[in-house]
Design a protein around this nucleic acid. Structure first.
Lengths: 206, 206
DNA sequence: CGTCGATTGTACTCACCAGTTCAACGTCAT
DNA sequence: ATGACGTTGAACTGGTGAGTACAATCGACG
């Protein structure tokens, strides 16, 4: 049993190490040697678990995407039972989403996706469908319940969710210089407040 | 003179060919040989004009960025003298911006930037500062004049510009599958209308 | 202890490609 | 014509890295 355990651990270590190195150097520059070293493993061991550098890349991306998605979904939780102060609840969720969008893993994942779309067109299916789309869906669901309780305008919740995310993450690209620059926490708060204020002004019932 | 002409033409051909091939294959996969072929030129000629593959990349990016920026700035022109129907004018500008944001060159440029940030950190300075930032500035200027004429709320025009662009281009990423999927013209119209409607609802004077 | 499978280090093959060299060629200016 | 200069094709060098082969080692389990 512990041997199986060991194998699983190695596999995990390899996937995480691979993502780390790919994120740091890009697909082409990252050597399988480097990845093995990062994972604390010998090069042949990598090829014992993954047939290819390419499939290694795909699996590493997929794993990272899973993590990122679940984190973001969890951030939406407060919306299922918003308090009396809806804007405050929205602002909390917005801040949390911003924090997640600016962290290391998210930025690296986005960069890697963008950079290797041309050489790995199928990576999109592994990540995107299980990514922003599912998040939008979840957010739209939460917003729809707010519509029913008369707190939001009774129009397309999907559109509302889309625009909420747009208002939130749109300004990020410029501010973080495409994810290369970290941002202060108070600035994140400010951005969340600005996005929510505009969103509420445009979408609140009345 | 015609020899000079010829040299200039070769240089242009090389830059354009380089951007095309880099966009198609990515920096690492693109061979200087391929680029030379695309430009209709011999490989040593490339090295006659550019010292390096890296500097070739930088110059190609810079040239493409210039083109993209000037196109987008031109799209803002209608805002200097908007007609009586402000939303209609905004919608026209929005549509034009969307069209430019979805075209081949823009998408490729964005992808290349994202992919090579790690290996070319300085490319950001060549492109970003002369890119979205300048565009936002210009848009904010136009919006400020609308504030003065009492058509928009008298708060931060920079924020307004930022959110206008966010509402516009945020939904793009998902819809175009990160620029890999083309989008129908009517859908572009719809997106422009939705963005402008929300923007006006949140920012119009009233 | 002995066996089996996974792991390790090392060292190798093989392909690919950036960058260079060189001799031949075209073209324009004087 | 002649010379200067950019261009061209082809062949070469050197480095790098994916993937593999192999013999030695480790650790679990009967």
């Amino acid at each position: 049993m512990s041997t199986t355990r060991g194998r699983i651990d190695k596999r995990q270590a390899i996937l995480e190490g691979a993502f780390t190195v790919f994120a740091r150097l890009g697909y082409a520059q990252a050597g399988v040697q480097d990845i093995a070293a990062e994972a604390g493993v010998a090069k042949p061991t990598v090829y014992n678990h993954m047939t290819d550098k390419a499939t290694l890349f795909r699996h590493a991306l997929e794993a990272a995407a899973q993590t990122v998605l679940s984190e973001r979904l969890a951030a939406l939780d407060p919306l299922v039972a918003p308090g009396d102060d809806l804007p405050a609840t929205l602002e909390g969720v917005a801040y949390e989403l911003l924090r997640l969008h600016t962290d290391q893993r998210s930025c690296s994942l986005k960069r890697l996706l963008y950079s290797e779309i041309t050489t790995f067109p199928d990576a999109l299916d592994l990540v995107l469908d299980s990514g922003p789309h599912r998040l939008n869906q979840a957010l739209a669901d939460r917003l729809a319940r707010l519509v029913l309780s008369g707190r939001l305008r009774a129009t397309d919740p999907d559109l509302a969710a889309e625009q909420f995310m747009a208002l939130l993450t749109g300004p990020l690209e410029a501010r973080t210089r495409m994810g290369t620059q970290q941002i202060t926490d108070s600035e994140l708060r400010t951005m969340a407040r600005a996005a929510v204020e505009t969103f509420v002004r445009a979408w609140s019932a009345s």
